[in-house]
């Protein structure tokens, strides 16, 4: 069992969720309520990582993060080291790659809130921020919860993108999925099996907890 790789994967998932939670609230709400030209294009763009092969997506990110790109150069200048083959690089790639998993369910969550409820909140004297906190978030919660669990579980198991952008540096970019692959390459089927089972257990619990929580919320609302 490669504990370093497992810890690294959990850290990567946690960072991705932490960054994507506010992003999914803002973007999901914007896409749910907004009526603007090019909304379809924005939605398609958000969904793109879902259909692209991770290696293709990873390749573009690798190019985009490289020292010769504006993003890579900016990162090098600001933080003194390059973005590719680092944990930070993995987090950035993971955040981008998980946009559809985070934003889509959040958007559906906000869309499920009737327009009159938001209008009622305004007529009750609630500012947009207070309405978000008191009315919208409690009602969109199941969608946001789904978004975060999907993101967490999905990041935990991501392989292609991590390999492309991060390489396989132990303690820095070698996540559990990469570690499993390495074990199989080294004919350590027992080690690979244990880590795979651990991944299955963690992912299953995450999803089971979400379902239990959303069922409880569903009962609370009913």
């Amino acid at each position: 069992m490669d504990w370093t790789a497992l810890t690294l994967s959990l850290e990567l998932s946690a960072w991705t969720v932490a960054i994507l939670l506010p992003v999914s609230v803002l973007a999901g709400r914007w896409l749910a309520y907004g009526r603007f030209r090019g909304k379809g294009a924005v939605e398609a763009l958000v969904m793109l990582p879902l259909v692209l092969p991770p290696t293709v997506f990873g390749f573009y990110l690798l190019v985009a993060f490289g020292r010769n790109s504006p993003v890579g150069a900016f990162w090098q200048e600001t933080f003194g080291h390059q973005l590719v083959f680092t944990f930070e690089g993995l987090v950035v790639a993971s955040v981008i790659f998980n946009l559809p998993f985070a934003i889509q369910p959040a958007q559906r969550g906000f869309e499920a809130i009737a327009v009159e409820l938001r209008e009622a909140a305004a007529t009750c004297g609630m500012s947009p921020l207070r309405s978000l906190w008191k009315v919208e978030l409690p009602l969109a919660w199941p969608g946001l919860m789904t978004a975060m669990v999907l993101t967490f579980a999905h990041t935990l198991g991501e392989f292609g993108i991590v390999l492309m952008v991060g390489g396989s540096i132990p303690g820095e970019t070698k996540t559990i999925a990469i570690a499993i692959y390495d074990r199989v390459q080294g004919f350590d089927m027992r080690g690979a099996g244990m880590m795979s089972a651990a991944l299955v257990a963690i992912s299953f619990s995450a999803i089971a907890i979400t379902y239990a929580l959303s069922a409880r919320i569903g009962r609370r609302l009913a």
Binding site: E116, E119, A120, L139, L221
Partner: peptide
């Protein structure tokens, strides 16, 4: 409101 729009939670 016509359908009351009470906050369900």
């Amino acid at each position: 409101f016509q359908n009351y729009a009470l906050f369900p939670h």
